[in-house]
Design a binder for these strands. Structure first.
Lengths: 226, 226
DNA sequence: ACCAATTCTTGATGCAGTCTTGATACTTCC
DNA sequence: GGAAGTATCAAGACTGCATCAAGAATTGGT
Protein backbone atom coordinates (compact mmCIF):
# COMPACT_ATOMS: atom_id res chain seq x y z
CA UNK A 1 0.00 0.00 0.00
CA UNK A 2 1.34 3.38 -1.04
CA UNK A 3 -0.11 6.76 -0.12
CA UNK A 4 1.05 9.95 -1.84
CA UNK A 5 0.94 13.23 0.08
CA UNK A 6 1.00 16.50 -1.84
CA UNK A 7 1.30 19.28 0.74
CA UNK A 8 3.83 22.05 1.30
CA UNK A 9 3.39 22.31 5.07
CA UNK A 10 5.83 20.20 7.00
CA UNK A 11 3.72 19.99 10.21
CA UNK A 12 0.82 18.56 8.24
CA UNK A 13 3.08 16.00 6.59
CA UNK A 14 4.44 15.06 10.01
CA UNK A 15 0.93 14.61 11.31
CA UNK A 16 0.03 12.38 8.40
CA UNK A 17 3.22 10.38 8.75
CA UNK A 18 2.44 9.77 12.41
CA UNK A 19 -1.16 8.85 11.77
CA UNK A 20 -0.78 6.61 8.75
CA UNK A 21 2.53 4.91 9.34
CA UNK A 22 1.21 1.37 9.97
CA UNK A 23 2.32 -0.85 7.15
CA UNK A 24 1.94 1.90 4.60
CA UNK A 25 4.55 3.42 2.34
CA UNK A 26 4.31 7.22 2.23
CA UNK A 27 5.68 9.27 -0.64
CA UNK A 28 5.58 13.06 -0.49
CA UNK A 29 5.76 16.13 -2.69
CA UNK A 30 5.72 19.81 -1.75
CA UNK A 31 4.52 21.34 -5.01
CA UNK A 32 1.79 20.64 -7.52
CA UNK A 33 4.14 19.85 -10.38
CA UNK A 34 6.21 17.54 -8.23
CA UNK A 35 3.03 15.94 -6.96
CA UNK A 36 1.79 15.15 -10.45
CA UNK A 37 5.13 13.61 -11.27
CA UNK A 38 5.09 11.66 -8.02
CA UNK A 39 1.70 10.15 -8.77
CA UNK A 40 2.81 9.24 -12.28
CA UNK A 41 5.97 7.61 -10.98
CA UNK A 42 4.76 5.85 -7.86
CA UNK A 43 1.23 4.90 -8.92
CA UNK A 44 -0.04 5.17 -5.33
CA UNK A 45 -3.23 3.65 -3.98
CA UNK A 46 -4.47 6.95 -2.55
CA UNK A 47 -3.52 10.60 -3.02
CA UNK A 48 -3.88 13.13 -0.21
CA UNK A 49 -3.94 16.58 -1.76
CA UNK A 50 -3.70 20.01 -0.18
CA UNK A 51 -5.31 22.82 -2.14
CA UNK A 52 -2.97 25.62 -1.05
CA UNK A 53 0.16 24.71 -2.93
CA UNK A 54 2.91 27.19 -3.75
CA UNK A 55 2.91 26.74 -7.52
CA UNK A 56 -0.35 25.61 -9.16
CA UNK A 57 -3.76 25.41 -7.53
CA UNK A 58 -4.77 22.09 -6.01
CA UNK A 59 -7.93 21.95 -8.13
CA UNK A 60 -5.76 22.08 -11.22
CA UNK A 61 -3.58 19.29 -9.80
CA UNK A 62 -6.64 17.12 -9.34
CA UNK A 63 -7.75 17.73 -12.91
CA UNK A 64 -4.30 16.95 -14.25
CA UNK A 65 -4.14 13.67 -12.34
CA UNK A 66 -7.60 12.75 -13.58
CA UNK A 67 -6.38 13.06 -17.16
CA UNK A 68 -4.79 9.66 -16.96
CA UNK A 69 -5.71 7.84 -13.76
CA UNK A 70 -8.67 7.10 -11.50
CA UNK A 71 -6.57 6.86 -8.33
CA UNK A 72 -8.63 8.05 -5.33
CA UNK A 73 -7.90 11.68 -4.42
CA UNK A 74 -8.78 12.97 -0.97
CA UNK A 75 -8.48 16.72 -0.63
CA UNK A 76 -7.26 18.08 2.69
CA UNK A 77 -7.80 21.80 2.82
CA UNK A 78 -8.02 24.71 5.21
CA UNK A 79 -10.59 26.26 2.87
CA UNK A 80 -14.02 25.36 4.19
CA UNK A 81 -16.11 27.29 1.69
CA UNK A 82 -18.78 25.27 -0.05
CA UNK A 83 -17.74 26.48 -3.51
CA UNK A 84 -14.20 25.16 -2.92
CA UNK A 85 -15.57 21.77 -1.97
CA UNK A 86 -17.85 21.64 -5.00
CA UNK A 87 -15.07 22.74 -7.34
CA UNK A 88 -12.68 20.13 -5.96
CA UNK A 89 -15.20 17.29 -6.05
CA UNK A 90 -16.26 18.15 -9.60
CA UNK A 91 -12.62 18.40 -10.64
CA UNK A 92 -12.28 14.71 -9.86
CA UNK A 93 -11.59 14.55 -6.11
CA UNK A 94 -13.27 11.67 -4.31
CA UNK A 95 -13.52 13.27 -0.89
CA UNK A 96 -12.88 16.56 0.87
CA UNK A 97 -11.81 17.07 4.45
CA UNK A 98 -11.54 20.47 6.07
CA UNK A 99 -8.58 21.06 8.33
CA UNK A 100 -8.40 20.44 11.17
CA UNK A 101 -9.69 16.89 10.93
CA UNK A 102 -9.35 13.81 13.05
CA UNK A 103 -6.78 11.30 11.88
CA UNK A 104 -9.25 8.53 12.62
CA UNK A 105 -11.77 10.03 10.24
CA UNK A 106 -9.13 10.34 7.56
CA UNK A 107 -8.21 6.69 8.03
CA UNK A 108 -11.87 5.71 7.76
CA UNK A 109 -12.29 7.73 4.57
CA UNK A 110 -9.17 6.15 3.13
CA UNK A 111 -10.69 2.77 3.86
CA UNK A 112 -13.80 3.83 1.98
CA UNK A 113 -11.82 4.76 -1.12
CA UNK A 114 -9.89 1.51 -0.96
CA UNK A 115 -13.15 -0.39 -0.73
CA UNK A 116 -14.28 1.39 -3.90
CA UNK A 117 -11.02 0.71 -5.67
CA UNK A 118 -11.29 -2.94 -4.76
CA UNK A 119 -14.70 -3.13 -6.34
CA UNK A 120 -13.79 -1.15 -9.44
CA UNK A 121 -10.45 -2.71 -10.20
CA UNK A 122 -10.13 -4.13 -13.65
CA UNK A 123 -7.80 -3.58 -16.56
CA UNK A 124 -6.18 -0.36 -15.43
CA UNK A 125 -5.85 2.13 -18.26
CA UNK A 126 -2.27 2.59 -19.39
CA UNK A 127 -0.83 6.07 -18.94
CA UNK A 128 1.56 5.48 -21.79
CA UNK A 129 1.07 4.57 -25.40
CA UNK A 130 4.16 3.39 -27.21
CA UNK A 131 4.41 1.91 -30.66
CA UNK A 132 7.36 2.12 -33.00
CA UNK A 133 7.92 5.78 -33.80
CA UNK A 134 5.08 7.08 -31.64
CA UNK A 135 5.12 7.70 -27.89
CA UNK A 136 2.36 9.38 -25.91
CA UNK A 137 2.83 10.06 -22.20
CA UNK A 138 -0.48 11.10 -20.66
CA UNK A 139 0.95 11.97 -17.26
CA UNK A 140 3.58 14.29 -18.74
CA UNK A 141 1.28 15.51 -21.52
CA UNK A 142 3.98 14.85 -24.06
CA UNK A 143 3.91 13.34 -27.53
CA UNK A 144 7.01 12.12 -29.34
CA UNK A 145 7.39 11.14 -32.97
CA UNK A 146 10.71 9.51 -33.79
CA UNK A 147 12.14 10.77 -30.46
CA UNK A 148 11.37 14.41 -31.11
CA UNK A 149 8.60 16.12 -29.19
CA UNK A 150 5.53 17.29 -31.09
CA UNK A 151 3.48 20.30 -30.11
CA UNK A 152 -0.27 19.77 -29.98
CA UNK A 153 -2.97 22.36 -29.38
CA UNK A 154 -5.31 21.75 -26.43
CA UNK A 155 -8.05 20.20 -28.54
CA UNK A 156 -5.63 18.11 -30.54
CA UNK A 157 -4.16 16.76 -27.32
CA UNK A 158 -7.51 16.04 -25.74
CA UNK A 159 -8.65 14.22 -28.84
CA UNK A 160 -5.51 12.14 -29.00
CA UNK A 161 -5.58 11.34 -25.29
CA UNK A 162 -9.16 10.16 -25.59
CA UNK A 163 -8.08 7.78 -28.33
CA UNK A 164 -5.14 6.63 -26.21
CA UNK A 165 -7.40 5.81 -23.27
CA UNK A 166 -9.25 3.46 -25.60
CA UNK A 167 -6.19 2.40 -27.54
CA UNK A 168 -6.91 -0.40 -29.98
CA UNK A 169 -10.67 -0.02 -29.68
CA UNK A 170 -13.04 1.84 -31.94
CA UNK A 171 -14.20 5.12 -30.44
CA UNK A 172 -17.41 6.44 -31.95
CA UNK A 173 -17.85 9.94 -33.31
CA UNK A 174 -20.34 10.73 -30.58
CA UNK A 175 -18.09 9.50 -27.84
CA UNK A 176 -15.14 11.54 -29.06
CA UNK A 177 -17.20 14.67 -29.51
CA UNK A 178 -18.81 14.48 -26.09
CA UNK A 179 -15.52 13.76 -24.35
CA UNK A 180 -13.52 16.43 -26.14
CA UNK A 181 -15.98 19.23 -26.95
CA UNK A 182 -18.82 18.39 -24.54
CA UNK A 183 -22.28 16.85 -24.88
CA UNK A 184 -23.64 19.86 -26.77
CA UNK A 185 -21.34 19.07 -29.71
CA UNK A 186 -22.20 15.39 -29.96
CA UNK A 187 -23.20 15.66 -33.62
CA UNK A 188 -20.65 18.17 -34.95
CA UNK A 189 -18.83 15.46 -36.85
CA UNK A 190 -17.13 18.02 -39.05
CA UNK A 191 -14.98 19.19 -36.13
CA UNK A 192 -13.63 15.68 -35.79
CA UNK A 193 -12.67 15.52 -39.45
CA UNK A 194 -10.75 18.78 -39.29
CA UNK A 195 -8.86 17.82 -36.15
CA UNK A 196 -8.17 14.26 -37.19
CA UNK A 197 -6.61 15.66 -40.35
CA UNK A 198 -4.41 17.96 -38.27
CA UNK A 199 -3.39 15.18 -35.91
CA UNK A 200 -2.49 12.95 -38.80
CA UNK A 201 -0.32 15.65 -40.30
CA UNK A 202 1.57 15.96 -37.04
CA UNK A 203 1.83 12.27 -36.20
CA UNK A 204 1.68 10.20 -39.35
CA UNK A 205 4.57 10.03 -41.78
CA UNK A 206 2.06 9.58 -44.61
CA UNK A 207 -1.21 11.22 -43.53
CA UNK A 208 -3.05 9.91 -46.58
CA UNK A 209 -2.44 6.32 -45.44
CA UNK A 210 -2.47 6.49 -41.65
CA UNK A 211 -0.77 3.78 -39.62
CA UNK A 212 -2.05 4.84 -36.22
CA UNK A 213 -5.12 7.02 -36.59
CA UNK A 214 -7.39 4.91 -38.71
CA UNK A 215 -10.92 5.65 -39.87
CA UNK A 216 -13.81 3.35 -39.11
CA UNK A 217 -16.20 4.56 -41.75
CA UNK A 218 -19.65 5.34 -40.46
CA UNK A 219 -18.61 4.68 -36.86
CA UNK A 220 -15.62 6.64 -35.63
CA UNK A 221 -11.86 6.36 -35.30
CA UNK A 222 -9.32 4.08 -33.72
CA UNK A 223 -5.74 4.30 -32.50
CA UNK A 224 -4.03 1.17 -33.75
CA UNK A 225 -1.23 -0.49 -31.84
CA UNK A 226 1.24 -1.50 -34.50
CA UNK B 1 -32.35 8.58 -11.56
CA UNK B 2 -33.82 7.67 -8.20
CA UNK B 3 -32.70 8.90 -4.80
CA UNK B 4 -33.95 7.31 -1.59
CA UNK B 5 -34.23 9.43 1.54
CA UNK B 6 -34.39 7.75 4.94
CA UNK B 7 -35.06 10.44 7.52
CA UNK B 8 -37.80 10.98 10.08
CA UNK B 9 -37.67 14.79 10.14
CA UNK B 10 -40.07 16.41 7.75
CA UNK B 11 -38.19 19.73 7.46
CA UNK B 12 -35.07 17.90 6.34
CA UNK B 13 -37.00 15.91 3.77
CA UNK B 14 -38.55 19.15 2.50
CA UNK B 15 -35.11 20.70 2.19
CA UNK B 16 -33.84 17.72 0.21
CA UNK B 17 -36.89 17.70 -2.02
CA UNK B 18 -36.34 21.36 -2.82
CA UNK B 19 -32.65 20.93 -3.47
CA UNK B 20 -32.66 17.75 -5.51
CA UNK B 21 -35.86 18.00 -7.46
CA UNK B 22 -34.33 18.51 -10.93
CA UNK B 23 -35.11 15.50 -13.04
CA UNK B 24 -34.69 13.12 -10.11
CA UNK B 25 -37.23 10.79 -8.60
CA UNK B 26 -37.29 10.94 -4.82
CA UNK B 27 -38.60 8.12 -2.65
CA UNK B 28 -38.81 8.54 1.10
CA UNK B 29 -39.04 6.54 4.29
CA UNK B 30 -39.33 7.70 7.90
CA UNK B 31 -38.03 4.67 9.72
CA UNK B 32 -35.10 2.33 9.38
CA UNK B 33 -37.18 -0.74 8.66
CA UNK B 34 -39.24 1.11 6.08
CA UNK B 35 -36.01 2.51 4.59
CA UNK B 36 -34.47 -0.92 4.12
CA UNK B 37 -37.66 -2.10 2.43
CA UNK B 38 -37.69 1.01 0.27
CA UNK B 39 -34.16 0.42 -0.95
CA UNK B 40 -34.93 -3.22 -1.70
CA UNK B 41 -38.05 -2.29 -3.60
CA UNK B 42 -36.95 0.80 -5.51
CA UNK B 43 -33.31 -0.07 -6.15
CA UNK B 44 -32.29 3.62 -6.02
CA UNK B 45 -29.08 5.10 -7.43
CA UNK B 46 -28.18 6.81 -4.15
CA UNK B 47 -29.37 6.50 -0.55
CA UNK B 48 -29.39 9.49 1.79
CA UNK B 49 -29.48 8.18 5.34
CA UNK B 50 -30.07 9.96 8.63
CA UNK B 51 -28.54 8.32 11.68
CA UNK B 52 -31.16 9.42 14.22
CA UNK B 53 -34.08 7.26 13.23
CA UNK B 54 -36.95 6.41 15.58
CA UNK B 55 -36.66 2.63 15.37
CA UNK B 56 -33.24 1.19 14.58
CA UNK B 57 -29.94 3.05 14.49
CA UNK B 58 -28.76 4.42 11.16
CA UNK B 59 -25.50 2.52 11.39
CA UNK B 60 -27.48 -0.68 11.59
CA UNK B 61 -29.52 0.38 8.58
CA UNK B 62 -26.34 0.91 6.57
CA UNK B 63 -25.05 -2.54 7.52
CA UNK B 64 -28.35 -4.17 6.61
CA UNK B 65 -28.40 -2.48 3.21
CA UNK B 66 -24.80 -3.53 2.59
CA UNK B 67 -25.77 -7.15 3.07
CA UNK B 68 -27.10 -7.28 -0.45
CA UNK B 69 -26.23 -4.15 -2.43
CA UNK B 70 -23.38 -1.74 -3.11
CA UNK B 71 -25.69 1.22 -3.70
CA UNK B 72 -23.94 4.44 -2.57
CA UNK B 73 -25.00 5.50 0.93
CA UNK B 74 -24.45 9.08 2.04
CA UNK B 75 -25.03 9.63 5.72
CA UNK B 76 -26.57 12.93 6.78
CA UNK B 77 -26.31 13.35 10.50
CA UNK B 78 -26.48 15.91 13.25
CA UNK B 79 -23.88 13.88 15.16
CA UNK B 80 -20.49 15.39 14.40
CA UNK B 81 -18.39 13.16 16.64
CA UNK B 82 -15.48 11.47 14.94
CA UNK B 83 -16.40 8.06 16.31
CA UNK B 84 -19.83 8.30 14.72
CA UNK B 85 -18.28 9.13 11.36
CA UNK B 86 -15.83 6.27 11.59
CA UNK B 87 -18.52 3.83 12.66
CA UNK B 88 -20.78 4.86 9.79
CA UNK B 89 -18.05 4.78 7.15
CA UNK B 90 -16.84 1.40 8.33
CA UNK B 91 -20.40 0.12 8.38
CA UNK B 92 -20.52 0.63 4.65
CA UNK B 93 -21.43 4.28 4.18
CA UNK B 94 -19.65 6.00 1.29
CA UNK B 95 -19.77 9.52 2.65
CA UNK B 96 -20.77 11.43 5.76
CA UNK B 97 -22.10 14.96 5.95
CA UNK B 98 -22.71 16.74 9.21
CA UNK B 99 -25.84 18.84 9.47
CA UNK B 100 -26.17 21.61 8.65
CA UNK B 101 -24.65 21.21 5.21
CA UNK B 102 -24.93 23.12 1.97
CA UNK B 103 -27.22 21.60 -0.60
CA UNK B 104 -24.63 22.35 -3.27
CA UNK B 105 -22.06 20.26 -1.45
CA UNK B 106 -24.53 17.41 -1.14
CA UNK B 107 -25.21 17.57 -4.86
CA UNK B 108 -21.49 17.50 -5.59
CA UNK B 109 -20.99 14.50 -3.33
CA UNK B 110 -23.87 12.72 -5.00
CA UNK B 111 -22.17 13.35 -8.35
CA UNK B 112 -19.00 11.75 -6.94
CA UNK B 113 -20.85 8.61 -5.93
CA UNK B 114 -22.54 8.40 -9.30
CA UNK B 115 -19.15 8.73 -10.98
CA UNK B 116 -17.94 5.80 -8.91
CA UNK B 117 -20.98 3.72 -9.74
CA UNK B 118 -20.50 4.45 -13.43
CA UNK B 119 -16.93 3.26 -13.27
CA UNK B 120 -17.76 0.16 -11.25
CA UNK B 121 -20.18 -1.08 -13.88
CA UNK B 122 -17.18 -1.76 -16.02
CA UNK B 123 -16.90 -3.31 -19.46
CA UNK B 124 -19.85 -5.47 -20.39
CA UNK B 125 -19.19 -9.15 -19.85
CA UNK B 126 -19.24 -11.86 -22.49
CA UNK B 127 -19.28 -9.79 -25.60
CA UNK B 128 -17.13 -12.32 -27.35
CA UNK B 129 -17.79 -15.08 -29.84
CA UNK B 130 -14.97 -17.51 -30.47
CA UNK B 131 -14.97 -20.66 -32.53
CA UNK B 132 -11.98 -22.20 -34.30
CA UNK B 133 -10.77 -19.67 -36.87
CA UNK B 134 -13.41 -17.06 -36.09
CA UNK B 135 -13.27 -14.49 -33.29
CA UNK B 136 -15.73 -11.64 -32.81
CA UNK B 137 -15.12 -9.05 -30.10
CA UNK B 138 -18.19 -6.91 -29.71
CA UNK B 139 -16.67 -4.47 -27.20
CA UNK B 140 -13.72 -3.70 -29.46
CA UNK B 141 -15.83 -3.99 -32.60
CA UNK B 142 -13.26 -6.30 -34.14
CA UNK B 143 -13.55 -9.49 -36.18
CA UNK B 144 -10.68 -11.91 -36.72
CA UNK B 145 -10.42 -14.78 -39.15
CA UNK B 146 -7.40 -17.02 -38.60
CA UNK B 147 -5.84 -14.31 -36.39
CA UNK B 148 -5.96 -11.60 -39.03
CA UNK B 149 -8.41 -8.75 -38.66
CA UNK B 150 -11.26 -8.44 -41.14
CA UNK B 151 -12.78 -5.13 -42.12
CA UNK B 152 -16.57 -4.97 -42.06
CA UNK B 153 -18.81 -2.13 -43.19
CA UNK B 154 -21.29 -0.75 -40.64
CA UNK B 155 -24.21 -2.83 -41.89
CA UNK B 156 -22.14 -5.97 -42.24
CA UNK B 157 -20.95 -5.56 -38.68
CA UNK B 158 -24.38 -4.83 -37.29
CA UNK B 159 -25.76 -7.90 -39.02
CA UNK B 160 -23.01 -10.12 -37.73
CA UNK B 161 -23.26 -8.77 -34.20
CA UNK B 162 -26.98 -9.43 -34.21
CA UNK B 163 -26.27 -13.03 -35.09
CA UNK B 164 -23.60 -13.21 -32.42
CA UNK B 165 -26.00 -12.01 -29.75
CA UNK B 166 -28.18 -14.98 -30.61
CA UNK B 167 -25.32 -17.31 -31.37
CA UNK B 168 -26.40 -20.86 -32.01
CA UNK B 169 -30.05 -19.94 -32.39
CA UNK B 170 -32.06 -19.29 -35.52
CA UNK B 171 -32.75 -15.62 -36.10
CA UNK B 172 -35.69 -14.91 -38.38
CA UNK B 173 -35.53 -12.69 -41.43
CA UNK B 174 -37.89 -10.23 -39.84
CA UNK B 175 -35.89 -10.04 -36.64
CA UNK B 176 -32.63 -9.41 -38.45
CA UNK B 177 -34.14 -6.80 -40.71
CA UNK B 178 -35.80 -4.86 -37.93
CA UNK B 179 -32.70 -4.94 -35.75
CA UNK B 180 -30.26 -3.95 -38.47
CA UNK B 181 -32.21 -1.75 -40.88
CA UNK B 182 -35.16 -0.78 -38.69
CA UNK B 183 -38.83 -1.78 -38.52
CA UNK B 184 -39.64 -0.12 -41.85
CA UNK B 185 -37.47 -2.67 -43.67
CA UNK B 186 -38.93 -5.77 -42.03
CA UNK B 187 -39.80 -7.42 -45.35
CA UNK B 188 -36.85 -6.37 -47.53
CA UNK B 189 -35.47 -9.90 -47.48
CA UNK B 190 -33.34 -9.17 -50.50
CA UNK B 191 -31.08 -6.89 -48.43
CA UNK B 192 -30.35 -9.81 -46.14
CA UNK B 193 -29.35 -12.05 -49.04
CA UNK B 194 -26.92 -9.49 -50.41
CA UNK B 195 -25.27 -8.85 -47.07
CA UNK B 196 -25.15 -12.47 -45.97
CA UNK B 197 -23.31 -13.20 -49.19
CA UNK B 198 -20.82 -10.44 -48.47
CA UNK B 199 -20.32 -11.63 -44.91
CA UNK B 200 -19.72 -15.17 -46.06
CA UNK B 201 -17.13 -13.99 -48.53
CA UNK B 202 -15.27 -12.22 -45.77
CA UNK B 203 -15.63 -14.85 -43.06
CA UNK B 204 -16.05 -18.29 -44.61
CA UNK B 205 -13.19 -20.11 -46.26
CA UNK B 206 -15.68 -21.71 -48.65
CA UNK B 207 -18.65 -19.33 -48.97
CA UNK B 208 -20.66 -21.84 -51.00
CA UNK B 209 -20.67 -24.29 -48.06
CA UNK B 210 -20.74 -22.09 -45.00
CA UNK B 211 -19.49 -23.41 -41.67
CA UNK B 212 -20.64 -20.52 -39.52
CA UNK B 213 -23.34 -18.58 -41.32
CA UNK B 214 -25.89 -21.18 -42.19
CA UNK B 215 -29.24 -20.76 -43.92
CA UNK B 216 -32.46 -21.91 -42.34
CA UNK B 217 -34.63 -22.08 -45.42
CA UNK B 218 -37.90 -20.21 -45.10
CA UNK B 219 -37.01 -18.97 -41.62
CA UNK B 220 -33.79 -17.04 -41.37
CA UNK B 221 -30.12 -17.53 -40.57
CA UNK B 222 -28.02 -18.92 -37.77
CA UNK B 223 -24.49 -18.51 -36.48
CA UNK B 224 -23.22 -21.98 -35.65
CA UNK B 225 -20.74 -22.61 -32.87
CA UNK B 226 -18.42 -25.15 -34.41
C1' DA C 1 -4.80 47.53 -22.35
C1' DC C 2 -3.08 46.73 -26.65
C1' DC C 3 -1.13 44.09 -30.50
C1' DA C 4 0.57 39.86 -32.56
C1' DA C 5 0.34 35.05 -32.99
C1' DT C 6 -1.82 31.05 -32.37
C1' DT C 7 -5.90 28.40 -32.30
C1' DC C 8 -10.72 27.52 -33.29
C1' DT C 9 -14.79 27.55 -36.16
C1' DT C 10 -17.12 27.29 -40.43
C1' DG C 11 -17.86 26.68 -45.41
C1' DA C 12 -16.82 24.65 -49.93
C1' DT C 13 -15.11 21.02 -52.93
C1' DG C 14 -13.58 16.55 -54.83
C1' DC C 15 -13.23 11.88 -53.79
C1' DA C 16 -13.72 7.11 -51.73
C1' DG C 17 -16.35 3.79 -49.70
C1' DT C 18 -20.82 2.07 -48.88
C1' DC C 19 -25.56 1.13 -49.88
C1' DT C 20 -29.33 0.15 -52.79
C1' DT C 21 -31.34 -1.91 -56.60
C1' DG C 22 -32.15 -4.89 -60.57
C1' DA C 23 -31.00 -8.81 -63.36
C1' DT C 24 -29.90 -13.59 -63.52
C1' DA C 25 -28.75 -18.19 -62.14
C1' DC C 26 -29.04 -21.71 -58.75
C1' DT C 27 -31.04 -24.93 -55.08
C1' DT C 28 -34.45 -27.37 -52.62
C1' DC C 29 -38.74 -29.42 -51.79
C1' DC C 30 -43.05 -30.97 -53.21
C1' DG D 1 -40.98 -30.19 -63.50
C1' DG D 2 -42.42 -26.23 -61.32
C1' DA D 3 -42.43 -22.90 -57.75
C1' DA D 4 -40.72 -20.67 -53.90
C1' DG D 5 -36.82 -19.50 -51.85
C1' DT D 6 -31.83 -18.51 -52.24
C1' DA D 7 -27.18 -16.96 -54.04
C1' DT D 8 -24.40 -13.98 -56.80
C1' DC D 9 -22.88 -10.10 -59.60
C1' DA D 10 -22.49 -5.47 -60.88
C1' DA D 11 -23.64 -0.52 -61.68
C1' DG D 12 -25.49 3.85 -60.22
C1' DA D 13 -26.89 6.64 -56.25
C1' DC D 14 -25.67 8.22 -52.19
C1' DT D 15 -23.55 9.12 -47.83
C1' DG D 16 -19.63 10.05 -45.36
C1' DC D 17 -14.63 11.46 -45.52
C1' DA D 18 -10.33 14.31 -46.35
C1' DT D 19 -8.59 18.54 -47.31
C1' DC D 20 -7.97 23.48 -48.10
C1' DA D 21 -8.76 28.01 -46.76
C1' DA D 22 -10.50 32.25 -44.57
C1' DG D 23 -12.60 34.79 -40.94
C1' DA D 24 -13.50 34.80 -35.81
C1' DA D 25 -12.05 34.13 -31.31
C1' DT D 26 -8.71 33.40 -27.96
C1' DT D 27 -4.29 33.54 -25.89
C1' DG D 28 0.13 35.38 -24.54
C1' DG D 29 3.50 38.93 -24.36
C1' DT D 30 4.72 43.72 -23.69
Amino acid sequence: MTIAIIDDELPMRRLLRAGLADGVRLVEAETGEAGIGLVAQENPDVVLLDLGLPDIDGIEVAKRIREWTDVPIIVLSARGQERDKIAALDAGADDYLTKPFGIGELQARIRVTLRHAERAKGPNPEALFESEGLRIDLSARQVFVEDSEIHLTPIEYKLLSTLVRHAGLVVTHKQLLTEVWGPAYAYEVHYLRVYMAQLRHKIESNPAQPRYLTTETGIGYRLRFT
